[in-house]
């Protein structure tokens, strides 16, 4: 690890004043610092700030950004009303990591692209402008949607995929704009020509909470396909909330992990489903929309049929179509 100054923040204003890299759980950042992928000159410890509560109101749940992944997964309301979120959290990492990792930190996880991690290789995300070896290289775990010709990294979070399906909004406190509530598509930036920019956060901005709207009607599911049955990142994951009434789908929210640089959601997929009677033919039509712009790079070509099949399996499970 490179040397750094350590500052313990006592209030949000101190975070903005200190500048530097924010640390909370540290489960991803310290790993990256050991590899010297991240070399912050100043670390600002925010774990003493009052962002540890889950507050319930009639129409929303406000999750403090320091709530650990374990606490969130085990929270009574989340288990009962937002089960897709509990399931996604429990499908990620290990008991030890979930006890340390925080809600805000999980949103800001960096990619596990092997070229990003290997400091002897070029990587446009780690060293802007140096190139990307993943395009023609070992890209089995990398993106088929939302990527660019500069970067095909995937976002590794399970939690964020469930939050995307739940229409979560991210509360950010910044010196310039005050407190803002951002949708996840506003929060995460696609790689384009600048894959080193992953979110709209500026230096000193602090994620203070995540807001979930009232629990959605319908059934919820999180299905994760991975190389081993525990402690592995998703090759493909699907977070789904589907409501059926009178034999027709009335609401559908589908978000995908392992496919793109951010939790992926495509309203076109949901438009195909809503108002129709569930059937395998309908699910096929929705899957066509999902992968219409998908691009494989060799090793990750398999994700295109795998995404289709996983989505169809989840829709069958939630609507009872066999």
């Amino acid at each position: 690890m490179k040397p750094f100054d350590y500052i313990r923040a006592t209030d949000p204003a101190a975070v903005q004043q200190a500048g530097g890299r924010i640390i909370a759980g540290g489960t991803n950042l310290l790993d990256l610092m050991k590899h010297q992928i991240e070399t912050p000159a100043t670390l600002v410890d925010v774990t003493r700030l009052e962002m540890t509560e889950i507050e319930q109101s009639e129409n929303s749940l406000r999750i403090g950004s320091l709530v650990t992944n374990s606490e969130l997964a085990a929270h009574e309301t989340v288990r009962r009303d937002y089960s897709v979120l509990s399931r996604a959290l429990l499908a990620g990492a290990t008991g030890q990591l979930r006890n340390k990792a925080t809600t805000g930190g999980n949103l800001l996880q960096r990619t596990r692209c092997p070229y990003f991690y290997d400091t002897t290789q070029p990587c446009n995300k780690r060293a802007p402008g140096s190139g990307c070896q993943a395009m023609e290289g070992a890209n089995r775990i990398l993106a088929i949607l939302g990527a660019s010709d500069k970067c095909i990294a995937t976002h590794p979070s399970d939690m964020a995929v469930a939050m995307r399906a739940l229409d979560a909004r991210i509360e950010v406190e910044s010196a310039t704009k005050g407190t803002e509530l951002l949708t996840m598509d506003e929060f995460y930036v696609l790689p384009g020509d600048n894959p080193e920019v992953e979110t709209v956060l500026q230096q000193g901005d602090l994620i203070t909470a995540v807001h979930l709207p009232a629990a959605p009607a319908g059934r919820q599911s999180y299905r994760k396909v991975r190389d081993r049955s525990s402690y592995a990142f998703a090759l493909v994951s699907v977070a789904a909330i589907v409501n059926t009434e009178g034999g027709k789908i009335t609401d559908a929210a589908l978000a995908f992990g392992g496919l793109a640089p951010r939790p992926w959601r495509d309203s076109g997929v949901e438009e195909v489903l809503i108002g129709e009677a569930p059937s395998e033919a309908l699910f096929d039509k929705a899957a066509d929309v999902l992968v219409a712009d998908a691009k494989g790079h060799g090793d990750n070509d398999f994700k295109i049929p795998l995404a289709r099949r996983t989505m169809k399996a989840v829709l069958s499970e939630l609507t009872g179509v066999s």
Partner: peptide, 13 residues
């Protein structure tokens, strides 16, 4: 009382 990985924690925190 919660288990964590001591290698991914800074002592000063």
């Amino acid at each position: 009382d919660r288990r964590i990985n001591a290698c991914l924690a800074l002592a000063v925190m």
